[in-house]
Simulated assay, not measured.
Amino acid sequence: MDFSRFDFAMVRAATNDFSNGNKLGGGGFGSVYKGQLPNGQEIAVKRLANGAKQGQVEFKNEIVLLARLQHKNLVRLLGFCLEGEERLLVYEFVPNASLDHFIFDPIKRMFLNWEARYKIILGIVEGLVYLHQDSQLRIIHHDLKAGNVLLDCEMNPKIADFGLARLFLVDQSRGNTKRIGGTIGYMPPEYVQYGQFSVKTDVFSFGVLVLEIVSGRKNNGSEEHLISNAWKKWRQGKASRLIDQTLNGGSESEKMRCIHIGLLCVQENVAKRPTMASVALMLNSFSMSLSLPSKPAFLIQSSVVASTALPEKFPSRVTSSDQSLEHTSPDQSLEFSVNPSVNIEDSITLPR
């Protein structure tokens, strides 16, 4: 494994004892801090909250997966620390924070012109194509969202947070899970309601993300549901009204093509959603004609948790940008004809 096992004292010193001044953010896993190693290298440190069982699973996932994944559009894991109750993951520091800090901010999003946004879309596509078919593993990210796309000093995207990622067998196309985890607004209904997932789960999330990038609006925001609004405007022949009014420059046809692709990715019919390899071709070849999108999958935030029926007695971790929701579903018996995916949290042993 091409990464290091860090000494806790070194990481603590690098982050100024995990001071609030060095804190970059946090979530259900714990907190993330900026640090600087003795050699001057800047790092980002994810610190697992003590006693967070879900965080332990995510910690293992990230070590096992990121140690074997190398791509310019994936955040790079430098190493980890295991000492007593401490669980730390050490990453390369990505200076421009995450995409959501830009596209949903009324001031900062004006700094992202269309050229920059289109480059971000292309980079995310390249990262997902690598995960789905070009890497030595076959990975479903499972939590693709604006908050998990980091931007480097040249505003190149890097997909981050592989705590919920799933490892697939080479000949496996889909699977099911009893542990539902993800972010409201980015999860397709077949996953939320039935635990069914595939590479098309990431495709759906990507479609939502593209619509957010073009419009500058959150899919799970307080305004009208973004997917619903995009579909309505598309049916009315007014899709151009979805484009962010602060967006300067760029090709109108590129923006409209991205809206078209976004709607293809969020179609309710899983089989009709394109693969990420097909999306790459659509974005790189304007001579390629696009099929008409069918009805998208509507998943309204206010009704997600109340109406979701999950396999019995398994907790779900559903997050939004503002909160984490933990719940256990009512008893229900579900049967699937597909083989389950490799459950990585049950099959790995951390180095001592």
Rank of each mutant, 00 (worst) to 15 (best):
C265M: 05
E345C: 10
L24P: 04
Y33S: 08
L209I: 06
R241L: 14
F314S: 15
A277F: 04
P340M: 08
W231H: 07
Q332M: 12
M1W: 09
S253M: 11
P296W: 06
A67T: 12
G175M: 04
G181D: 00
R179H: 11
I300T: 09
V203C: 11
S19W: 02
R235F: 00
L24E: 05
G182S: 04
G27T: 00
E190G: 01
V270E: 12
A165E: 06
I344T: 12
T177Y: 00
V270Q: 14
F80M: 00
S19H: 08
I344M: 15
V266T: 07
K53R: 13
A165Q: 04
L48F: 05
S253I: 12
Q41F: 01
L65Q: 10
L150P: 02
A49K: 14
G79L: 01
L299R: 04
K145W: 06
F286S: 13
R235C: 13
S287L: 10
L226A: 06
V45P: 02
I213D: 05
N96L: 04
S251N: 13
N284V: 01
V90R: 01
N20L: 11
P315D: 06
E212T: 08
G25N: 05
I348E: 10
N61I: 00
R109E: 05
S240M: 11
D105M: 07
K238V: 02
R138E: 02
K200S: 11
Q236I: 06
V338R: 01
G221F: 00
L99G: 01
K145I: 05
F168W: 07
E224F: 06
R174H: 15
Y91T: 02
A165D: 07
C265R: 00
N339W: 06
F206C: 08
V199I: 14
P293G: 10
G207Y: 04
T183Q: 06
L334G: 00
S329R: 05
R12M: 11
L281K: 14
K272T: 14
L226V: 09
W114Q: 06
E42A: 11
F102M: 09
N339I: 11
H132L: 06
I213E: 04
K232I: 10
Q332S: 15
S31F: 12
V125D: 01
H142D: 05
